[in-house]
């Protein structure tokens, strides 16, 4: 009876682990897409709206869900405060603290990190170029992430269950 219970637990855990890993593969391209959309909105706010960076980030953040939302909001907060942080420091801090909650990989983080060096420090034309570059890089990452998703999402979902089944068979 206990053996039976244990087997069920192992299978449940294995399936769960597989599902979670598969979810990550599914979430990554989605989050990249949302990040790209956020950057495009930022581009509009900067080039047409002349919106100051903290306000623009907050506005875009509000329309997004976690985890993108928390990165943008945190960056905006840092710039507002009396801490005297520059835009770059504030963005880097937000990325550093919030990245763990995303399904995205270091490649995407580096793109955003690079962008933070130039955000807010030049004229509109220049800002536009920097954001466009970041968007292009993210789009490349997105298509890679979609391929990964097609390849691995299903595999990990079944792999979890199958591995759990193997363990059960071996120890039963």
């Amino acid at each position: 009876m206990i053996k039976m219970l244990g087997a069920v637990l192992v299978i449940a855990a294995g399936t769960m682990a597989g599902w979670l890993k598969a979810r990550q593969f599914a979430n990554r391209p989605d989050q990249i897409r949302r990040l790209i959309q956020a950057l495009k909105r930022l581009e509009t706010e900067i080039t047409y709206g002349f919106t100051p960076l903290p306000e623009a980030l907050r506005r875009i953040g509000k329309q997004n869900h976690a985890p993108i939302r928390s990165i943008l909001m945190k960056a905006a907060e840092g710039m507002d405060g009396q801490a005297g942080m520059t835009a770059q420091e504030s963005l880097h801090k937000a990325i550093h603290e919030e990245w763990g909650h995303t399904a995205m990989k270091p490649a995407e983080r580096d793109v955003l990190y690079q962008l933070a060096f130039s955000l807010g420090t030049s004229d509109r034309r220049d800002q536009l170029k920097h954001i466009e570059t970041a968007v292009r890089q993210l789009e490349a990452e997105e298509s890679a992430a979609r391929e990964d998703q097609a390849k691995y999402e299903k595999m990990f979902r079944s792999l979890g269950l199958l591995t759990a089944a193997l363990i059960v068979i071996l120890i039963y």
């Binding site: 002349f50 903290p54 623009a56 520059t86 420090t121």
Partner: peptide
Amino acid sequence: THRLLDQITNHSLYTMEEEL
């Protein structure tokens, strides 16, 4: 000077084109 410029432009130099 970077820090000062960042602070006086509210982190947004692009909003200051007319001022510049």
